[in-house]
Design a protein around this nucleic acid. Structure first.
Lengths: 251, 251
DNA sequence: CAGTGGTCTAGACCACTGG
DNA sequence: CAGTGGTCTAGACCACTGC
């Protein structure tokens, strides 16, 4: 399966079999051969399909599982990961109540403030790997916990992938927004990076979050990616951190 | 190696061989059988020592490596992880310059403001799993980049483990503080969790960071742990985020 | 009970490092 | 060149799930 070439330290020209198998499975995931939540073929089946041993398929799937692209369940099978999971809902939201008790808090009350199509500004275009002026969708929403507005988010999506997304449709959907993106638009967020700062809100932001003008807030700028590291969403969040905090684990 | 018991779903009473091997290796790491930066025995040697196959040792070490307790280097061996590594120095510091160019920035200029022994307050004691009133060491320092004070940190260490740590000794040490902890006190930080908020500085903090009173700052409270999840440091950082930001990856 | 993922073994061979 | 970690195979058996 390796292209036989002369040894060349500069361009490694060597990729283990299981990496090649992983790439093939990744292609099928990306092509939508198996839908989110569905099982992929068993290790034995995949081994037969690719003409390799079960152990090699296993190692390929191990990596996909460690990247949260796929979910193993002993005795049942291996399933395409989804943001609609009950267990790991809101995988990308790191804001938790100071009590730590995210269970008792319950889900956020969501208010869509705005949802409109417009042309990408320079910085939005850069973040989404588009050209300035390309069509983008802009959404603004507020999340409240126990009636207290806590998160104000502006987000931008490439218009080409989200045709037909409206404020009504956002309001109608239940559960995580990323789960809706999977079901309605076939777009799955797989990885993201965030830049966090402390800022002061402008007048409009202060009003929406119901805080005084001088209240320090957490600014969280996120770029979320699909497969292939394609950026698919830019999100700028403002978090109140008087009753909540951003929780992070360092390994 | 397994204690044979009747199947009991409630108390799993089953632990795979490689987990047991991992625990044994962990014990040796903890006991200091191999020092930070040193190689541990080869997979073959460990397999012989524990009377298991190389593959089983391999899987045990794989997990230790994925938890950054150990570092594999093909052709050379497996080494006890250390904070003194040139590559991954400041593993736990997530504040980066907005340019992203951490290389050109160079190391921070460090100023030890204060270092004293005192008795643990209730909240410090709780974080460090001590009793209120136990001896702790308190350190305050400022980190500056290109002459601009950017980080103000207060940190607390359990006095029992850091006998003889003084401001002079802190000033004398080069490189990451955690590397010094390893070399001088045999304490290795392995894992940490951070709670992040946006706050306003008090007068003294504003002075030390050379910012106006109303400047929003990132408050980063970290609890760092050694092996066994023993908390060994409480650190409260204030970060300026006008030229830097806290960078986080979501998987 | 059959089918799935999970563990364990033994052995062969490959890629990388250093002397 | 010998020694290390890294890959790959084939086969046996175990634990978990659902029918």
């Amino acid at each position: 399966m390796n292209t036989p070439t002369l040894p060349d330290p500069a361009t490694p020209s060597f990729s283990p079999l299981y990496q090649q198998i992983k790439a093939l499975i990744l292609q099928s995931l990306q092509a939508g051969e198996w839908k989110p939540g569905e099982p992929i073929p068993s290790e034995m089946d995949l081994a037969a399909r690719f003409r390799v041993s079960q152990g090699t398929v296993r190692k390929a799937i191990d990596e996909l599982a460690s990247e949260n692209l796929v979910l193993r369940r002993q005795g049942k099978g291996t399933f395409v990961a989804t943001h609609a999971e009950q267990q790991v809902q809101y995988r990308f939201l790191k804001l938790v109540p100071d009590s730590g008790d995210t269970a008792t808090e319950g889900p956020a009350e969501r208010t869509i403030v705005d949802c409109k199509r417009l042309r990408a500004s320079a910085d939005v275009a850069r973040a989404l790997a588009l050209r300035t002026g390309d069509a983008v969708l802009q959404v603004r929403r507020v999340l409240a916990y126990a009636g207290v507005p806590t998160i104000l988010e502006d987000l931008w999506l490439p218009g080409a992938f989200f045709k037909g997304l409206t404020a009504e449709r956002l309001r109608a959907s239940r559960g995580p927004m990323y789960a809706m993106f999977e079901a309605e638009f076939g777009v799955r967020m797989v990885r993201a990076e965030e830049k966090i700062r402390a800022v002061l809100p402008d007048a409009e932001q202060a009003l929406l979050l119901d805080v005084a003008a001088g209240t320090p807030l957490l600014s969280v700028e996120r770029v979320a990616h699909t497969y292939n590291d394609t950026p698919m969403e830019l999100r700028r969040g403002l978090y109140r951190t008087d009753t909540h905090h951003y929780r992070n684990e360092l390994g």
